[in-house]
C-alpha cells in the first residue's frame, strides 16, 4: 500500500525537451553573460558549496575533485583555490576559454579542463579517481538521469554532490510566467529527491542560500537567450525583459537571492 510513483519517468518526460533545447551551442552563446555573473558574484554559490563540502568532510586540501558542467568556473575556481586538483568537464569552447581566463587571473595551475559532454567522458578511465564529484545546475542535460548518476558514482571514491535551485525564485518565476517560458515550472530538485529515494539511494539534503550579481547587459543577454531556446525573440519579449531588468537595477548591477538544494551521498 505504499505509493508507487515512477519518478524516473517523470524526470525523463519533463527534461527531454529542456535537454534537447539546451545545446552546446546555447552554452557557447551564454559564456560571456554567465562568466560576468560568476565574476560579479565573486563565485558566491560555488564558494558556498565549497565551504559546505569542507565543513561536512566531503572534501579537504588533499582532495581530487571533478566538476561536471563547470562553465566558466563557478565551482571549479573556489574548489581549485582549496583542493589538490579539479578536473573540469565542459563541452563549450567559449566556457573553457572563460574558465582558463578566470584561472589565470588567480594563478591557479591545478585545473584540468576536458572539453567534452559528461556523456562523452570515458568513466572507466576515471574509475574511483575522485574524492568528490560535483554537478551543479547541469542535471537537466541528462534525461537518462540514473545512467548518468551511476557513472558519477563510478568515478567517485568518496562523495557525490548534485545541486540545483530549491523551490523557485519568486522574481524569475514571475518573469518566465510573463514570457510564457515553461521550463522553470518543473521542480527538478523535488523530482530528483524522490527519484533518488525511490531507488534506495537515500541522499542527504542541504539547502544553502546564494546570491547572484550581474551587469545589466549580462542580465538582459541571459534572459533573451533563454527565450530564444524556444522561439525567436519578439519586440514584446525584449520590452518585458528590459523593463524587468531596469526595475531591478541598482548601481548598474542586477542582484538576486535564492536557495540551492544539494543532494549528496557517500559512494558505497
Amino acid at each position: 500500500m505504499t505509493v508507487s510513483i515512477n519518478w524516473e519517468e517523470i524526470w525523463e518526460r519533463n527534461i527531454q525537451d529542456i535537454a534537447s533545447r539546451t545545446t552546446v551551442d546555447y552554452w557557447e552563446s551564454r559564456a560571456e553573460d554567465y562568466s560576468d555573473m560568476v565574476l560579479n558574484s565573486a563565485f558566491h554559490h560555488g564558494e558556498q558549496i565549497r565551504q559546505f563540502c569542507f565543513s561536512e568532510g566531503l572534501a579537504d586540501s588533499e582532495s581530487q575533485v571533478i566538476d561536471i558542467g563547470s562553465g566558466p568556473g563557478a565551482l571549479t575556481i573556489p574548489f581549485a583555490r582549496n583542493v589538490q586538483s579539479v578536473t573540469a568537464i565542459e563541452p563549450a569552447a567559449q566556457m573553457i576559454q572563460k574558465l582558463e581566463e578566470n584561472a589565470k587571473g588567480e594563478n591557479l595551475m591545478n585545473i584540468y579542463p576536458l572539453q567534452k559532454t559528461w556523456q562523452e567522458v570515458n568513466t572507466r578511465q576515471f574509475e574511483k579517481s575522485f574524492d568528490l564529484v560535483l554537478c551543479c545546475h547541469s542535471l537537466w542535460h541528462f534525461p537518462d538521469i540514473m545512467v548518468q548518476l551511476k557513472r558519477m558514482d563510478m568515478v567517485s571514491r568518496g562523495y557525490c554532490c548534485i545541486a540545483g535551485g530549491f523551490g523557485t525564485s519568486e522574481d524569475s518565476a514571475y518573469l518566465y510566467k510573463t514570457l510564457r517560458i515553461r521550463e522553470m515550472e518543473f521542480d527538478q530538485f523535488h523530482c530528483l529527491f524522490n527519484l533518488l529515494n525511490s531507488k534506495g539511494m537515500r541522499p542527504n539534503v542541504t539547502v544553502l542560500p546564494y546570491e547572484t550579481h550581474r551587469s545589466e547587459r549580462s542580465a538582459i543577454s541571459s534572459m533573451e537567450q533563454v527565450v530564444q531556446k524556444y522561439r525567436p525573440l519578439t519586440s514584446k519579449d525584449t520590452e518585458i525583459i528590459r523593463d524587468y531588468v531596469k526595475s531591478r537595477l541598482k548601481d548598474g548591477i542586477v542582484s538576486s537571492n535564492g536557495l540551492m538544494g544539494l543532494l549528496w551521498w557517500r559512494v558505497a
Partner: peptide
Amino acid sequence: IYNILYQNGRVPNVEV
C-alpha cells in the same frame, strides 16, 4: 514527511 514539509513551503535539511 519531507514532501509534506516541502509542499507546505518549508525548507528542510536532511542527514541520513
